[in-house]
């Protein structure tokens, strides 16, 4: 297997706007593992918010920005399970185009035996599977393996199969149920020092709920947890 030296980083809209530090951490991890990281300047969003709400016309209009900015000659690395799902499972059909070589960050790092510093030595963390990453892309072992390699002890969640309640527009169409689902997730982390997730959507949801309640584990993006530790 030849190791690709060049990768394209897709920040995702939430990454770019809400958690740019996590995207920067993803870039650091990729560089530290020896990859040249390109950031295609024309990128915007994969169109998922509209697609999942049924607005395919709107989704198509936005998704075209992705197809216009990224190349099929190098892997695209995405620090988001749900955007990676949108790009691999739905975007080619939506646009009628050839697929791109898309990788979710942890799957890519694990595949290429990325260098991970012992940034979480002695810490107990919990990992929350984002639904799309787990079920659509089948990525569950990789992020856990990386966290363990960063020195963390993983505390299994009571019901790792349960969604955090984000679900895009679901979070505002059914806000009460959505919040109750976030409570379930936060409570299930028990005494873990932080709840780590590989999806900015889950991050927004769980962090927003934790801030409102003023209690519960801190919620940290996987890229940050790996690059700098959860502290």
């Amino acid at each position: 297997m030849s190791i690709p030296s060049r990768v394209q980083l897709f920040a995702t809209c939430l990454g770019d706007l809400i958690c740019p530090d996590a995207v920067a951490d993803a870039e650091t991890l990729l560089r530290d593992s020896g990859f040249d990281v390109e950031f295609p300047g024309g990128q915007v969003c994969c169109g998922q918010p509209a697609f999942n709400a049924g607005h395919h016309g709107a989704a198509r209009r936005v998704a075209r920005t992705f197809a216009a900015s990224f190349s099929r000659a190098a892997p695209v690395v995405v620090p988001s399970g749900s955007c990676a799902t949108m790009l691999t499972r739905y975007l080619p059909e939506l646009l009628g185009c050839e697929p791109f070589d898309v990788w979710e960050l942890s799957a890519f790092l694990d595949r290429h035996d990325a260098r991970v510093a012992a940034s979480n030595a002695g810490r107990t963390l919990a990992y929350h599977d984002s639904c799309h990453l787990l079920r659509e892309l089948g990525v569950s072992e990789q992020p856990r393996r990386l966290l363990e390699r960063s020195g963390a002890t993983l505390r299994p969640l009571e019901r790792p199969d349960l969604c955090c309640g984000f679900g895009g527009t679901f979070s505002v169409r059914q806000p009460e149920v959505s919040v109750a689902m976030a409570d379930d997730k936060l409570a299930s982390a028990g005494d873990a020092e932080a709840l780590v997730t590989a999806d900015p959507g889950c991050l927004l949801q769980l962090r927003g709920r934790r801030e409102r309640r003023g209690e519960g584990p801190r919620v940290v993006h996987l890229a940050t947890a790996l690059a700098r530790g959860v502290a």
């Binding site: 639904c131 969604c163 895009g168 679901f170």
Partner: peptide, 8 residues
């Protein structure tokens, strides 16, 4: 819309 589309 009464689903988070988690796929379970």
């Amino acid at each position: 819309h009464a689903s988070s589309l988690c796929g379970a």
